[in-house]
Design a protein around this nucleic acid. Structure first.
Length: 480
RNA sequence: CGGGGCGUGGCUCAGCCUGGUAGAGCGCCUGGUUCGGGACCAGGAGGCCGGAGGUUCGAAUCCUCUCGCCCCGACCA
């Protein structure tokens, strides 16, 4: 047996991840463009499926898609004090265009709150213009120091929703509604369980009043922020003079929200389910759900096998691997690495018996069934796989979540955790929402991931850093 | 930007110390035999050794400069 091209998870989780991305034909480093990647057909197809799931939900909630410019006047970024401070280090700036130095440089958008604020101020005069609910599918650029494919690249794809409301309650409702959409897609489409919560003040989006996130746990126990939804308050309204006249005839600044998920989700998907044999995709996000590998020795076997393969493929919506010059074994490995949920083997023996062999990607189990039962059985298997992937991810999250009662205990649990070696945990401990406490955790490279919206633990008690009373435990972890 | 490493066929690398006709494995192409978990045989294509300068009769190899990439640290969806 040939050596696997994939580093086992236990040996080096980071190397394993790279191998799975590459071998699964999801993406490859751009090389010639620092920190960027090429998303390949198999990866982009997953993104398209995710886009469809999200887009449908956004539209059901009344949002419309729009598109704002990639280039943003540099001065815009500076209008919101916290925002510029947060993004300044990672901006790419265009200073020359058309062969001439620009009077005012453009930044390539790292996010679009500022330029959208500008247009909101033009569009909004009255409470009757509100709410505005828009979303854009776009690319953004953030000059990151350390990149990893899908998880953090210089350029990435995402959606950013932007809404404006006449009061804070309504804006906050929007923020939480979207957080629910994200959690729904993560759990029910991606089979990736998440914890909904509020970011600590130290970790919130630059310019937001509060940020909310969904956090998930990867197989190495590291946390991944899978989506964020921001309550921007009136900060951008003030910065961009987005005013409206309310029912009482008074001028007020709008209350805004913004929210996004990115191609990072694909990284999360990979690190949630894949194994040492390669990519594992939940059926709902698998571009190809089943592949038939035809098996034949002699020419007189080839005809009937291919004929049956095509007929069955049509019936159940599978793809037939017709490549010449590859043995069936090589084909099995090929599709396995690419995360196809089900591989169907069809050879002379099956033609004779009217059967077909079905192999499930996640469990590796094989079953022989009558061709006539395949359609129903395939649907059931895909359904079961979707459910089982979520169940096992939930179990892993549960198994690797612990409580701690002192800062020393937290440090002891997390100090030796790395992306390569793994061993990460979600440590539930009481920590006050104070940047000084976040700083204390940072001493051993851990962060407050979020403060869960739903307290599933034992309520309030004393902060392990300051000793002050807090009302619940927060999620502490090392993260991507 | 600090510390470490690396640039040689498409990929992974050997060769460099001790200068003398550019190599291996994988992949690719052709033909044949194979095919129920990574097939085999035969033939073949493919490289100004990252770039520039220098030393030398002669440089992948020695010297100087340069460019780029990867890893570790400080920032982050």
């Amino acid at each position: 047996m040939a050596e696997s091209p994939i580093t086992p998870r236990g040996k080096d989780f980071a190397a394993w991840y790279q191998d799975v991305v590459l071998q699964g034909d999801m993406a490859e480093p751009a090389e010639i463009v620092k920190g960027c990647m090429v998303i390949k057909a198999n990866g982009y197809a997953v993104w398209e499926l995710l886009q469809k799931e999200l887009d449908t939900r956004f539209k059901e909630l009344g949002h419309s898609n729009v598109y704002f410019p990639l280039l943003i006047p540099q001065s815009f970024l500076k209008k919101e004090a916290e925002h510029v401070e947060g993004f300044a280090p990672e901006l790419a700036v265009v200073t020359i265009a058309g062969g001439k130095e620009l009077e005012e440089p453009y930044v390539i958008r790292p996010t679009s709150e500022t330029i959208i604020g500008h247009f909101f101020s033009k569009w909004i005069q009255s409470w009757r213009d509100l709410p505005i609910l828009v979303n854009q599918w776009a690319n953004v650029v953030r000059w990151e120091l350390r990149t990893r494919m899908f998880l953090r690249t210089t350029e990435f794809l995402w959606q950013e929703g932007h809404t404006a409301h006449s009061n804070h309650d309504e804006a906050l409702e929007e923020v939480l509604r979207i957080l629910d959409v994200y959690a729904d897609v993560a759990e029910n489409v991606m089979a990736m369980p998440v914890i909904k919560g509020v970011k600590s003040r130290a970790e919130k989006f630059a310019g937001a009043l509060r940020s909310y996130s969904i956090e998930s746990m990867m197989q190495n126990g590291l946390a991944l922020q899978a989506g964020t939804s921001h309550d921007l308050g009136q900060n951008f309204g003030r910065a961009f003079d987005v005013k409206f006249q309310n029912k009482e005839g008074q001028l007020d600044y709008v209350w805004q929200t913004s929210w996004g998920v990115s191609t990072r989700l694909i990284g999360g998907l990979i690190m949630s389910h894949s194994d040492d044999k390669g990519l594992v995709l939940p059926p709902r996000l698998a571009p190809v759900k089943a592949v038939i590998v035809p098996i034949y020795r002699k020419d007189e076997e080839k005809g009937p096998v291919l004929e049956a393969a095509h007929r069955i493929a049509k019936e159940v919506g599978a793809k037939v691997d017709l490549r010449e010059g590859h043995s069936p074994g090589a084909k099995f490995f090929h599709w396995e690495r690419r995360g196809v949920p089900v591989v169907l083997e069809l050879g002379p023996r099956d033609i004779a018996s009217g059967n077909i062999v079905l192999k499930r990607r996640d469990t590796g189990t094989k079953e022989v069934l009558a061709q006539t039962d395949l359609s129903a059985r395939l649907a059931a298997v895909l359904d079961a796989m979707q459910g089982d992937l979520l169940a096992s991810a939930k179990q892993r999250l549960k198994d690797n979540t612990v409580t701690a009662e002192s800062i020393g205990e937290v440090e002891e649990i997390l100090k030796n955790v790395t992306a390569e070696k793994g061993g990460g945990k979600f440590v539930m401990a009481r920590v006050k929402d104070d940047p000084a406490c976040d700083a204390r955790l940072k001493e051993f490279k851990a962060t407050v991931r979020n403060i869960p919206l739903v307290d599933e633990y034992d309520g309030g008690g004393k902060c392990i850093v300051t000793g002050e009373e807090v009302d619940r435990r927060v999620v502490i972890a090392k993260s991507y």
